[in-house]
Structures are given as structure tokens and as C-alpha cells.
């Protein structure tokens, strides 16, 4: 168990190292920190002196180590625009984004499993064909188009849902504002969640269907039939567990990816999360904020993947965590 954990953690650290290198490279190449600090009316001599003081003339390695050391202490620089530590700015936006991702995940999990299972069990039914057809449409329409269409239909035409912002949120702990405590909050998060889920959901329906159809062809399912087991038990006990095992791994990666996908959704719905903020930061060339965003998103990605791997190891009896990595 310990060896397996240690192995996963080392992998996670390695990935974070690569991400930090990329972030660092971006920091060095995007915008000029001097200009942000002192403007353009300063003589070249003073500039050089400042560069020295700020360590901008040090070797790459020294600069990177300083950057990584600071990052480890939670110091990802100060946002040019907000004049606040970049990490603080992001962490304030984090709850909005995580709640959006959570909403989308609920939709994906809640719908992909029943739809995937149904289309696998009844591949020839009309409903299955409709679902599979729609899934293709869903995959091929870009998120922002889905979002705009939904706003047009459900907010503008029918007025069922608000079209932007988070609405009434409630403070739960620290600075965490939640959408899930008021009816208005729920109304606000529904459309953005659907928009964010709109690409992943069809992908998952298709993935689950494909896995399930393969499992239904397996010898052990045939054997379960030969034992006279009830079909529902075959579908949901024998087949589904084997279907979901590989899906869990893909699913973890996708949830991590969704954090990044929020950029589009948040922008269309003016959702005050990290993704919306990131786009603004790019427009303002707010380098510390951009870098901090990359690192935070990378970190979330790595953490979800590691957790998912551990869960996979726990639920899959053929992966013996106690013995693995030894």
C-alpha cells in the first residue's frame, strides 16, 4: 500500500515539476516585468540596476529555483492588475469554478451511466439510435455555441434561466460562496453546467456504451446467463462494474480537463471563476496571474488524477494495492 502510494505521489510531483517549468518559461517570455513596475520613462542604466536587483540577470537555474521555492511557499507573484498576491486572486475565484465543474460532473455521471447502459443493452431500439445520433451532434457543436444557443432559447426566449453571473450565493466557510444553497443559485448554475457538460457527456455515453457492449460479449457474462442469473443482475452487477473500471480512469482525466474547459463557459456566462479571470489576465498581460492560473489548474489536474488512480486501485480487485509497486 505504502509503495503504491509513494509511487503515485512521485509521479504527481514529476508532473508538477514539468508544469512549473512551463509556467516559468512563460513567465520569462511574456511581457516585461520592468515595464509593469516602472513604466517606460526610466533610463537604461536604472533599468539594468533594477534587473540586477530583481535577479533577472541570474542564471536560468537560479531563477527557476527561486521561482519554485517561492511557489512552494504559496508565493506565485503579485498580480499587476489587482495588486494582490496572484494566488489569493485565484483562490477567491476557485469556488465558483469548482462548483461549476461539480455541477457539470453531476450531470455527466447522472446521465452518462443510464444512457450508456441503455444504448448498450438495447442497441437497436429507436431511442438508442436517437441518443447515439444526438451524442454525435453534442460532440461536434463547440461549447460556446451550445452556451450561446441555450442562452438564446432558455434565457432570452423563454426567460426560464438567468443568462449570466452566479446569482445569490451563500457563504459557507472561509470565502467559499456556494450556488447550491439558494433557488436562485441553482437557477444560475444550471445552464453553465449543461454547457460545460455538453462535450464530455456525449463522449462518456459513447465510452460507456462501447465498454459495456464489449463486456456483454465476454465469457463471464455468457457464463452468468448460463447460470440462470436475472438479466438486471447481469447488467448492473456483472457487467456494469467491469464497464466502469476503465471509465473511471478516463473520467478522472476528463474532470481535470474540464477545469480548463471552464474558460469558454465562464466567459460566455460571465461566470466569476478562474477561467473568466484567466481570459481577462491574458488580455491584460497580467503575467503573474497567468502563471499562477497554470500552476493551480495543473495542480488540480494532478491531484484529481492521483486520487482517481488510488480509487481505481481500491475498487479493482485485480489491482492489489498492497502488493503493487513493491
Amino acid at each position: 500500500m505504502f509503495a503504491y502510494l509513494a509511487k503515485r505521489v512521485i509521479q504527481a510531483v514529476a508532473v508538477m515539476f514539468v508544469i512549473s517549468l512551463i509556467a516559468f518559461a512563460i513567465q520569462g517570455n511574456l511581457g516585461d516585468p520592468l515595464r509593469e513596475l516602472v513604466g517606460q520613462s526610466v533610463s537604461e542604466e536604472v533599468r539594468q540596476q533594477l534587473r540586477d536587483e530583481m535577479g533577472l540577470n541570474d542564471s536560468f537555474v537560479t531563477q527557476y529555483l527561486r521561482f519554485a521555492g517561492n511557489a512552494l511557499q504559496g508565493d506565485l507573484g503579485t498580480s499587476y492588475f489587482f495588486k494582490e498576491p496572484a494566488l489569493d486572486v485565484i483562490l477567491k475565484k476557485l469556488p465558483a469554478t469548482l462548483e461549476l465543474v461539480f455541477g457539470a460532473t453531476l450531470i455527466i455521471v447522472g446521465f452518462s451511466v443510464p444512457l450508456g447502459v441503455y444504448t448498450a443493452i438495447k442497441p437497436d431500439s429507436i431511442l438508442s439510435r436517437v441518443i447515439m445520433g444526438l451524442s454525435i451532434v453534442g460532440i461536434s457543436i463547440p461549447v460556446f455555441l451550445t452556451a450561446i444557443l441555450m442562452i438564446f432559447v432558455f434565457s432570452v426566449e423563454y426567460g426560464w434561466f438567468p443568462s449570466y453571473g452566479r446569482g445569490d450565493t451563500v457563504q459557507v466557510w472561509g470565502y467559499w460562496q456556494t450556488n447550491f444553497a439558494t433557488a436562485d443559485g441553482w437557477l444560475h448554475i444550471i445552464l453553465p453546467s449543461i454547457a460545460l457538460a455538453s462535450i464530455m457527456l456525449p463522449l462518456f455515453v459513447r465510452l460507456i456504451r462501447a465498454e459495456m457492449m464489449e463486456v456483454l460479449q465476454s465469457e463471464y457474462v455468457k457464463y452468468a446467463k448460463a447460470k440462470g442469473i436475472n438479466p438486471w443482475r447481469i447488467y448492473f452487477v456483472h457487467a456494469l462494474k467491469n464497464t466502469l473500471l476503465p471509465v473511471i480512469t478516463v473520467g478522472g482525466v476528463q474532470i481535470g480537463t474540464m477545469v480548463a474547459y471552464t474558460i469558454l463557459t465562464e466567459t460566455v456566462f460571465q461566470w466569476p471563476g478562474m477561467g473568466f479571470m484567466f481570459l481577462e489576465a491574458v488580455n491584460r498581460v497580467d503575467t503573474p496571474l497567468i502563471v499562477a492560473y497554470l500552476i493551480v489548474v495543473g495542480f488540480i489536474f494532478v491531484v484529481t488524477n492521483t486520487i482517481v488512480d488510488l480509487i481505481y486501485g481500491l475498487v479493482n480487485p485485480t489491482v492489489n494495492i498492497a502488493r503493487m509497486g513493491a
Partner: peptide, 14 residues
């Protein structure tokens, strides 16, 4: 019924 290959006959997750 007894199937041919016991390695794939039993369900691996049960």
C-alpha cells in the same frame, strides 16, 4: 454448463 477456459469464465470483479 462448464466452459472451456476457466481464466475468463469467472467474473474478475466478483
Amino acid at each position: 454448463m462448464i466452459f472451456q477456459d476457466p481464466m475468463v469464465t469467472l467474473n474478475p470483479v466478483l
